[in-house]
């Protein structure tokens, strides 16, 4: 965590993600759909592993419940 190129950027991001994920949950959207992890550009295997794991989490959740919304109801 302390290795951010921009010193504290990731800490700042983490705080916001903490709030947002709980707000999503409050609004009925699975908070697992949002994820923040820190992987350096030199850690390709970790990145791949992370993404694969994320996919494994996302697949059972299915498409976003908001996706069906695209056809707008007429006001």
């Amino acid at each position: 965590m302390s290795e951010c190129n921009y010193l504290y950027g990731n800490y700042c991001a983490e705080k916001r993600v903490t709030v947002l994920s709980q707000m999503l949950d409050f609004c009925g959207i699975e908070k697992d759909r949002l994820r923040a992890r820190w992987v350096s550009s030199a850690e390709a295997p970790e990145f791949v592993e992370e993404i694969n794991e994320f996919i494994d989490v996302l697949k059972p959740l299915g498409p976003s419940p908001l996706k069906k919304q695209t056809s707008k109801d007429v006001a």
Partner: peptide
């Protein structure tokens, strides 16, 4: 300037900018 978890000074990038600070 930053230090790493051991307290040594942390360069901008271990491979690409080993002697620079961010």
């Amino acid at each position: 300037v930053p230090t790493d978890q051991n307290g040594f000074f942390l360069e901008a990038h271990a491979k690409l900018r080993p002697l620079d600070f961010a």
